[in-house]
Simulated assay, not measured.
Amino acid sequence: MIKTFSFSILFFLGAVLSTFFNVEELASKESVVVLSSESYLKIKGKTNVSTFECQFDMTTISDAIRIHYKDYNQSIKFTDTKLILPNVEFNCGGKAINKDFNKLLNTEEYPEIILKLKEISKVKHQNNTTTATIEITISNIVKSYTVPISITNDHNIQVSGVMPLDINDFNLTAPTKMLGMVKVSPKIEIQFSLKILKP
């Protein structure tokens, strides 16, 4: 299984670079980071009768993540910096809902969610917040989002945020239950809190 964890979430990498490596030149750079076991990434959604949460198994991300970037005045831009999330590593709390989740994502045909980090702004707002541009591939459809992220910097770096998605943007059709009376909302969220360590 590919150990290079792609969604997601890589929003944190810009903060790592500017804090740990103090890069100033426009030449292409390369480095690695490691995710702490305290990190999490989950997809949250709701139906017309309840809510659900599918959490990614972070223990599958044991290797260092290699990143490639250029540092500009206002932003850090990345090339080929991604996390690959196997759909089957999401646990929604039971076999039946896991099956529905994988049916929703067309796992048999497209077994992975791919998140590519494109850019992180250096412009800080209130409470140490900034923005990241993320390219996400679900069911072979690619969309880009600009996502607000918050950064906590103590001994290590911790980055957290919420990325709202509409499954209709990816041509996904949510399964229904009980003769169509239970329906999944097309609005979902990817929530993440990623603690970064130097390897």
Rank of each mutant, 00 (worst) to 15 (best):
V49D: 10
C92V: 03
D100V: 03
L85Y: 03
T59C: 05
H68E: 11
Y40P: 05
Q55R: 14
L41K: 08
S37E: 14
S62H: 12
T51H: 14
S75P: 00
V49S: 10
D71P: 01
M58H: 08
K44M: 12
D63I: 04
H68I: 06
L41Y: 07
I76V: 14
F52D: 11
G94F: 01
F90N: 01
E53F: 02
T81Q: 01
K77S: 01
Q55A: 14
N91G: 10
P86N: 10
N87K: 10
N87G: 06
N91P: 09
K77W: 00
K82F: 11
P86I: 03
T60Y: 08
N98Q: 10
D57Y: 05
Q74V: 04
I97P: 02
N98T: 07
T60C: 06
D71N: 12
V88N: 13
H68S: 11
K99R: 14
K77T: 02
T47K: 01
I67P: 01
S50E: 15
I61S: 13
D57W: 05
Q55S: 15
I65W: 05
N87P: 04
Y40G: 10
Y40C: 11
F90G: 00
L85C: 08
L85D: 04
I67R: 00
I61E: 09
D71S: 09
Y72G: 02
D57M: 04
K46F: 07
I65T: 09
R66H: 10
C54Q: 05
K46Y: 08
T79K: 09
D63N: 13
F52M: 09
D63A: 12
G94C: 00
S62F: 11
N48S: 03
S39I: 04
E89C: 09
E53M: 07
N91Y: 14
N48D: 05
L41N: 10
M58E: 13
T79W: 02
D57A: 10
S62N: 14
S50P: 06
V49P: 00
Q74R: 10
Y69V: 00
Q74T: 12
K82W: 06
G45Q: 03
C54I: 03
T81P: 00
L41H: 07
F78Q: 00
T47L: 02
R66P: 13
I84T: 13
L41E: 11
N98V: 05
K70N: 14
F78T: 00
T59W: 06
L85N: 04
I67K: 02
D80F: 06
F78V: 02
K44S: 15
K82V: 04
T60H: 09
D71T: 10
S50Y: 09
I65R: 07
